[in-house]
């Protein structure tokens, strides 16, 4: 599977996150304790999202306990055991905006629209994932215990 150019086409077709204003959140220490939506996410949908190489892109960089390990990237630590190493709130901040913790990180901020350059028109002013999708991803990662 050739993700890199497939992405060019598929990413355009993928339903982009609605251009609604970002919901406010509070960072305490290295975590966002409260759900962005006020509700818990759906771990099954989170699993589907994390696997989706065109939409969430997680497995382009991360290995994870999911199918097709040979198509998973080696640019980032494995997500296996993330739920043991990190609290739910710590995971949330890392997905929302890793660069608050590590400014030089290559991990995209999934819930942020400012500070970016030359964003393609179809992705402009939209976060990579919606608040609901972030919560689904967080709910799934919490289940990844070693």
């Amino acid at each position: 599977m050739r993700w890199w150019n497939g992405l060019c086409v598929l990413a355009m077709l993928a339903p982009a996150a609605a251009a609604e204003p970002l919901r406010p959140y509070v960072v305490e220490g290295d975590a966002i304790a409260r759900s962005l939506t006020g509700r818990p996410g759906d771990a099954d949908n989170g699993r589907r999202l994390v696997m989706d190489r065109h939409r969430s892109l997680c497995v382009l960089c991360h290995a994870a306990p999911l199918p097709d390990p040979h198509l998973q990237g080696t640019l980032a630590p494995t997500l296996a055991g993330a739920g043991s190493r990190l609290s739910e709130g710590q995971i949330r901040l890392r997905v929302v905006d890793m660069k608050r913790l590590l400014p030089d990180s290559i991990m995209p901020a999934y819930y942020r629209t400012d500070g970016l350059a030359r964003v393609a028109a179809s992705f402009r002013d939209r976060p990579i994932l919606t608040a609901e999708e972030i919560e689904d991803v967080v709910a799934f990662l919490v289940t990844l215990k070693e």
Partner: peptide
């Protein structure tokens, strides 16, 4: 939010997906 350098200088030889 990636530069050419993020991928081609620092991480060549690694795998991006497949």
């Amino acid at each position: 939010d990636l530069s050419c350098a993020s991928c081609h200088d620092a991480r060549w030889g690694e795998r991006l997906g497949g």
